[in-house]
Design a binder for these strands. Structure first.
Length: 342
DNA sequence: CGGGTTTGACCGGCGC
DNA sequence: GCGCCGGTCAAACCCG
């Protein structure tokens, strides 16, 4: 139905739900965890969308699904309006807008990862760039190896929380912060601290609804799990993404906010949460799943998510996802999914 | 001392 | 061409 209008005008964004009081994008009840997963290939980003007073016509809620309340909120004892029908939230994503493009991006990322790695360990390794840097005294930055970088797939998650930095189990190093135009809240830039892992993360608050934190991931982790002993230590045996490790320095106990992918907590909180699964309308579509009905989470990490869910082969996606869908998604919801209808 | 944050400057893309 | 703006760098600083 209307769900199919996504890819036409806003190729990168699918669904989403900002409940936010009065005039959020979608009719997500206030107080719920609102999450949006999307992918941005350089088109419209969620940040762009958030600037708009009203949602684009093509940006529609595809599904309202049950998503557990932010762990952080629960931990803080916040009142999360958990209706009998579970939290209503929108979670969806698109994976590929074009296979070729994706290949490009992947190729680019490969080199980019190396570049990042070198950057992190330069001051001696990257002779060329280093010399150039030192001689020019920062007047000339290292040449970009790829003049035109295609953007890495991005996945953004909107979370209603007071905590600025939601911990996801990975260790991040903040490398920058910028004021965002038309927003009183700054945007912080983070990199995965793992060697050779070029995954980036941006964190900012929605200017429309300050209670919403927008976390945008870019890239794919090159390591399977959080590398930090802290993270490992608290990782549940399921491949849950996160836990309560404090990836960020300063996050500390306050960032008990593994709002995402903390499957065990979800299970504890809402053991019967339905799972949302959505196939996008592109051939190589992908899905974002919240499987709380068994010990396996498909969001063990977004890197896994990307590898296993967001970037599968078209056929495998359909097959696999459908299978999971059958297990996890209420029939009514699936019925509404255009993908399933096609 | 190592690792992370802060923050001002720089760079490049893009729109006008 | 110019200016704006997002993204990044890197020195200084902070903290355990």
């Amino acid at each position: 139905m209307a769900n199919t209008t996504f890819s036409d005008q806003i190729p990168a964004v699918h669904g989403g739900g900002i409940g936010g009081g009065g005039g959020g994008f979608f009719d997500v009840p206030q107080g719920y965890l609102d999450m949006l997963a999307f992918q941005d290939y350089g088109g419209v980003s969620i940040f762009d969308l958030l600037q708009q007073p009203t949602p684009p016509a093509s940006l529609v809620v595809e599904q309202h699904v049950a998503v557990p309340p932010p762990v952080a909120a629960v931990e803080r004892g916040e009142t999360v309006n958990t209706p009998t029908t579970q939290n209503s939230s929108s979670v969806s994503c698109s994976s590929n807008e074009g296979g070729a493009n994706n290949v490009d991006q992947e190729n680019h990322r490969r080199s980019d990862v190396v570049e990042d790695d070198q950057e992190h360990h330069d001051d001696g390794d990257d002779d060329e760039d280093d010399q150039e840097k030192s001689t020019t005294n920062k007047q000339l930055k290292p040449k970009k190896k790829n003049p035109k970088k295609p953007r890495e797939p991005r996945f953004a998650f909107l979370t209603k929380t007071d905590i600025d930095h939601l911990d996801d189990g990975y260790r991040w190093r903040k490398y920058g912060q910028k004021a965002v135009k038309n927003s009183p809240y700054p945007r912080s830039y983070h990199r995965c601290t793992s060697v050779a892992c070029g995954v980036k993360k941006r964190v900012e608050r929605s200017s429309d609804d300050p209670s919403i934190v927008i976390t945008t991931y870019e890239g794919t982790h090159t390591h399977p799990y959080p590398m930090t002993p802290r993270g490992i230590g608290i990782l549940p045996e399921t491949r849950s993404y996160g836990g309560f490790s404090t990836g960020d320095h300063g996050g500390g106990v306050n960032s008990v906010s593994s709002y995402l992918f903390t499957q065990p907590y979800y299970q504890n909180l809402q053991p019967q949460l339905p799972t949302y699964f959505h196939n996008q309308n592109t051939p190589s579509s992908s899905s974002l799943s919240f499987n709380t009905t068994n010990a396996t989470t498909h969001l063990s990490s977004y890197s896994h998510l990307q590898e296993r869910r967001f970037c599968p082969s078209p056929s495998s996606t359909l097959v696999t996802d459908h299978g999971l869908l059958e297990d996890l998604v209420p029939f009514q919801i699936r019925k509404d999914d255009p993908k399933e209808q096609n």
